[in-house]
Design a protein around this nucleic acid. Sequence first.
DNA 1: CTAGGGTTAG
Length: 545
Amino acid sequence: MAKNIVSLIKANSSVCHLAQIHTHLIRTHLIFDVFHCNAMLNAYNQVSSPSKAFSFYRHMRSLGVRDNSFSSSFVLKSCAKIPSLHHVQQIHGRILQGGHQSDSLLLTSLMDVYSICRDLESVRKLFDEASQRDTVTWNVLISSFTSNNRTRDALLLFDAMQSPEYGSEPDDVTCLLLLQACAHLAALDFGQRIHQYADDHGFGNLFKIRNSLIAMYSRCGSVDKAYKVFDEMSERNVVTWSAMISGLAMNGYGREAIDAFIEMRRAGVIPDEQTFTGVLSACSHTGLVDEGRKLFDMMRFEYGLLPNVCHCGCMVDLLGRAGLLDEAYRFIVNEMRVQPDAAIWRTLLGACRIHRYVDLGERVIKHLIELKAQHAGDYVLLLNIYASAGNWEAVSDLRRLMKERGIHTSLGCSTVELGGKIHEFIAEDDSHPRKNEIYAMLDEIAQQLKIAGYIANLDSELHDMDDSEKDSALYYHSEKLALAFGILATPPGRTLRIAKNLRICVDCHNFTKVLSNVYNRMVIVRDRNRFHHFKGGFCSCNDYW
DNA sequence: CTAGGGTTAG
């Protein structure tokens, strides 16, 4: 009899039936049998009702059912879907009470769920106190760092885990996680190290590693290396092609990205949503309006894919950047089947900045405020629009408003990688051990650039200060510090790679253009949006003027 | 007594 009910639970795929079974279990007192309870927990997870799983767990606990490690394992799974630190702590407590603290699989699940709840301290504590740590334990720790904005620390773990003290071997998953971290930091040297490691250990040819390498090299601004990886592959799946297409697109090779898309179809690989995100963004960065429109239709009518917010964002960017701002606005209001999110409005705001559309910019900000999603960066864009239109009154009004509402712009932060070590610069930062040299170098560079015709663009400094203060504040933008350090610490002619958390400002953009000429350096800056390849006084992007 | 678990490509 009891066996039948378990198979009934397993066979059921609806929350409604499970609720009936729940009632039945109570009536028949079978609910006091942990085996039945665990089957229920598992079933709720499988019909993706994590909250039902958790309330069932609470119910069985309140009845005093003796749960076991299976129960914890099942209910942890549901916690991963609806993160709640409070719930996780309760389960953690039960695991300890039940004496399962040396079940390493249970502990790694627990670490993962703490990480999802953004409680890294607990993750770390569990890790440190674990009786044994295998590669997976390390991977979970690394993953908890990479998914919680601690990418730099994640990279450090690659060496730590291999140290004689621990002696864990990184595996393919470790490499994947670290490649993503490198992509995030634009850490090319470190990425190459991981590449080498993967090749040496026999998993360099896995699809997931190769595909991840393409993305990493692209996001480090090295399309040629990404292409080499791509080219050497004898088989390519949709992820491979999409990674290559996006890589080309984000580095300014829009035409090549579209060609790759055509070649992909010829090779018989079916594009999916993300492929279209890549190829549409290629169109928008390159200003290929007609191609973009055609591809948008192809996606819907030939492949039956529903446009998501990313696709629509690309279309808005495409139209907006091309100066068709009213059409872009109509597209959002009339044609989008999905609810426009903040990113969509923000894209349009960016186009308003490029084309100096003050009125539309103000309307867009209202939409953002409606969504309660206005970031500091949005106000900065609007400030930029006012400033470029010479409306200083509006600039100071908006600045006052920002002050009143307590909107703080986040600090600019740039990173440079040197010999596998990540150097971080924050605006007006003086924490770097070589700060004196760096500031002296920055002085020298500024003098050289002024001779070559660089003039500080004071409009870029949007804080409330007088011109001479502006001059020096601009001076200490994080990317300039990173540039000075790069010039200082690398041999002449070496390409400089910088990753920045915010959008590069017009002044830094000019500064870098002139610098690339005067110092004869390639400079590759990845900002929040895309890459800028500076060479001989020019930049590959057409967003700044 | 039965049952199951950790990280993971664009």
